[in-house]
Amino acid sequence: MTASDARPLSRRDWLLSERPASRTQARLGRAYVAWRRFSANRLAFLGLLIIIALLVVAALAGVLAPYSPTFGDLKNARLLAPSAEHWFGTDDLGRDILSRILYGSRWTLYVVILVAIIAAPIGLLVGTVAGYAGGWTDAILMRITDIFLAFPKLILALAFVAALGPGIENAVLAIAITSWPPYARIARAETLTVRNSDYIKAVQLMGASPFRIVLRHIMPLCISSLIIRVTLDMAGIILTAAGLGFLGLGAQPPLPEWGTMIASGRRFVLDQWWVAGAPGFAILIVSLGFNLLGDGLRDALDPRSGDQ
C-alpha cells in the first residue's frame, strides 16, 4: 500500500471503528456499512443511477428539453419519425416527444413521492398500533385493512377517481388510499415479532408509555422493511398512475404525463410506434430502476442478513 492511500484508509477506519467516540460517528459508521453492502451490488447501483438520473432530469427539464412540451408545430411537424432534430419523433399535435418525456418525469416523480409520503406513514401507523395494542384495536384496524385489500388496486383507484373527478391530484389520492394496506400488514407482522421480545419488555419495565414504545422503539424497526417495500412498489405506483392516465382518469391532456401520452399514442401504434413507444420505454426504465434499487436496499438494510 502506498503512502498516498493512507488518508482515505484512515477515514474508513474511523467509520468502521469498533469504539465510536460520539453519537455521530456511530451513526455514520452504521450508514457506511450499509452503503458498502449496497454499493457492492452492481445492479442495485445501476438502479440508484437511474433514479438519480430521473431526479436530475426532472430538476433540469426546462434546460434539457429542446422544445416546448405543450406547443407543437401543427403545420410542419406532425408525427415525424425520430431524427436528429426530434430524437424521439413528434406526436399528432406536432410536439417533440423527447421534451414531453423530460417534462413528464416531473409528474412521475410528483405521483411517486406524494403517494409514498401519504401511504407509507398511514400504513406504518395503522400496522404498528394494531400489532402492539392487539385485541379489539387490532381486530378493527386489520378488518378495515382487509376491506381495502379485498378489491384489486386499479379497480378501487378507478372507483375513487370516478367519485372525486379526474385529474392528477385525485389520481395521487386514489392511489395513496389504495396502497397503504400492504404497508400496514408488513408493519403489523414486524411489530408482532418484536412485541414480545425482551428489549421491548425492558422498555416497558422502565415505565414507558405505549405511545412512546410504538413511536421510539417499534417504528424504527419497521421502517427499513417498509422503505424496501415502498421502493419495490414504486414501479407499481407509476404503472397505476399511467394506467389511470391511459384510461383518461389521471392526468388530463395536455399535461405530459407518460401514461396519458401512451393513451394518446395508441391510435398510431402500428404506423407511428414511437408516439406510444417512447413514453412506454421511459416507464419501463424508471420502474426497472426502482425495482433494482429496492432489491439492493433489501440486501443492505435487512437486519437478518447479519450486521457483522
Binding site: 453519537r23 456511530a26 425482551d198 428489549y199 419488555k201 425492558a202 424497526l221 437486519p303 450486521d307
Partner: peptide, 18 residues
C-alpha cells in the same frame, strides 16, 4: 428493575449503548 436471561435479546438491536 429486572435483568433478563438472554443478553442477545434484551438490548434493542438498533440502539447504541448510549
Amino acid at each position: 428493575q429486572m435483568v433478563f436471561q438472554d443478553p442477545y435479546g434484551s438490548l434493542h438491536p438498533r440502539q447504541t449503548v448510549d
